[in-house]
Design a binder for these strands. Structure first.
Length: 414
DNA sequence: TGACGTCAAGATCCG
DNA sequence: CGGATCTTGACGTCA
């Protein structure tokens, strides 16, 4: 069993860069692609550190690479970073995947769209082969178009599939869609073209087909995995958003129930959730609480809790002091805290705590800048100050702060 | 034609 | 000028 998350690593301050077609010079592409490979390597190191063995690589790693107006040789140019990444992936036994988005439509009625989809999917599998030794690292795809009737949509898909490279055919997996192709639809199609099926619980809830429980559908889908580990997608409905929208964080208790229901220990489970790796680590800890990870986890959340709810901060401290700590209690408190609104007094207090790390070492210019922020504390956004503080944490290499989720709390707003 | 989804880049506005 | 806020891009489908 492996638990994973998709594309963006919240807890790693390194972020992918992008660009516009208008500014896509050779040098600019080279710079951005190289940067993004550095981010990928950093994300993978982070995953290893936190025991995460399943990771979806973002399609945005090489923006515009398959665009018709872009001709960029990438395979030879990035051999070194590829090999470094591959070694990390190989040594850790991490399973990678990729997932072209909603605009890759292999069975479109428009031939140009199909041409592009073939290029896109082949690129994904080529890219994967550069960074993972796993011949079955999947490229996951939705059928996407049910235009006309499903029968003709299926035959269009089979035609498109035939045009893929052999490598792509081996990597391709189908996922049940939120509308259009349901679990039953993709299972029938997948059996015909001999590819595995990925079950997505929330899509299935939106677009049900079988009169079967999730566990039973997963059992049906397991037949499409021969000599490969079965993978599913798991997400929870966001309380206050459109039906089908992913929750901001995973409720660990709900996850544990589901995990028990579907015999999760036999599956690779990709979590689809806004807070990404944070929920992934939460679920890993709740399944298998290692004594050593509790302190690290509290260290990461510490200032985020401090700026939202000082009583909760003390309650968690007490869990440690009284020896009554467990991850269920810890995350229950944290999950309540992240839902709270902001309080400028508490935010300022947390800012001052974090500034304490730099008080002595900061340059005069940095001290002036900090003083200016504090002076105008009520007129500027707290994110501006956090951006500044994070840049200091990176510059002065304060590991404790660089790993703090404090800097990424904005994902829990709105 | 515009909504859908995504999120950083880029543009523009404000003090 | 820095910082906040709005718009654009890149894509295909479908009402």
């Amino acid at each position: 069993m492996a638990l994973g998350y998709a594309c963006i690593c919240i807890g790693d301050y390194n972020r992918l860069k992008s660009l516009r077609l208008a500014g896509a010079s050779e040098q600019k592409l080279e710079m951005i692609y190289r940067h993004n490979l550095g981010v990928l390597r950093s994300n993978i190191s982070y995953n290893i550190k936190h025991g995460i063995k399943l990771f979806r690589v973002s399609s945005d790693i090489f923006p515009l690479i398959t665009h018709s107006e872009i001709a960029f040789e990438w395979k030879n140019r990035f051999r070194e970073p590829f090999d470094e990444i591959k070694a990390l992936v190989s040594d850790s036994g991490m399973r990678l995947s990729m997932h072209p988005g909603q605009y890759t439509v292999l069975n479109s009625g428009n031939q140009e769209v199909v041409d592009k989809a073939v290029v896109e999917i082949d690129h994904h599998s080529e890219f994967l082969s550069c960074i993972t030794p796993d011949a079955y690292a999947p490229v996951v795809l939705h059928v996407n178009s049910a235009r006309g009737d499903k029968k003709t949509a299926v035959s269009r898909f089979k035609k498109g599939f035939e045009r893929l490279s052999d490598a792509s055919k081996k990597r391709l997996c189908l996922e049940n869609d939120e509308k259009g192709f349901s679990a039953r639809d993709i299972y029938d199609l997948a059996c015909e073209i001999d590819v595995p099926c990925i079950f997505d619980n929330l899509h299935n809830a939106m677009n049900p087909s079988y009169e079967l429980s999730d566990k039973e559908i997963i059992e049906v889908f397991s037949k499409t995995y021969v000599g490969k580990r079965q993978k599913i997608h798991y997400s929870q409905q966001a309380e206050d958003k459109r039906p089908g929208a992913h929750s901001v964080t995973i409720s660990h208790r709900e996850f544990l129930r589901y995990y028990g229901d579907v015999s999760g220990e036999d599956l690779d489970i990709m979590l689809e959730v806004k807070d990404k790796d944070l929920s992934c680590i939460k679920c890993i800890n709740c399944l298998d609480a290692k004594n050593s990870s509790r302190y690290r986890e509290w260290a990461r959340y510490k200032y985020l809790v401090m700026e939202k709810d000082i009583e909760a901060y003390h309650r968690i401290g007490k869990l440690f002091n009284t020896g009554s700590f467990d991850f269920d209690k810890f995350y229950t408190i944290v999950d309540a805290v992240i839902k709270k609104g902001s309080d400028r007094g508490l935010e300022t207090n947390a800012v001052m705590h974090v500034w304490g790390y730099f008080k002595k070492t900061a340059s005069d210019e940095e001290k002036r800048r900090y003083a200016k922020y504090i002076e105008k504390i009520n007129d500027i956004s707290i994110e501006t100050i956090k951006t500044f503080l994070l840049s200091l944490a990176v510059k002065y290499d304060i590991g404790y702060l660089k790993e703090s989720i404090y800097f990424f709390g904005e994902i829990y707003k709105k």
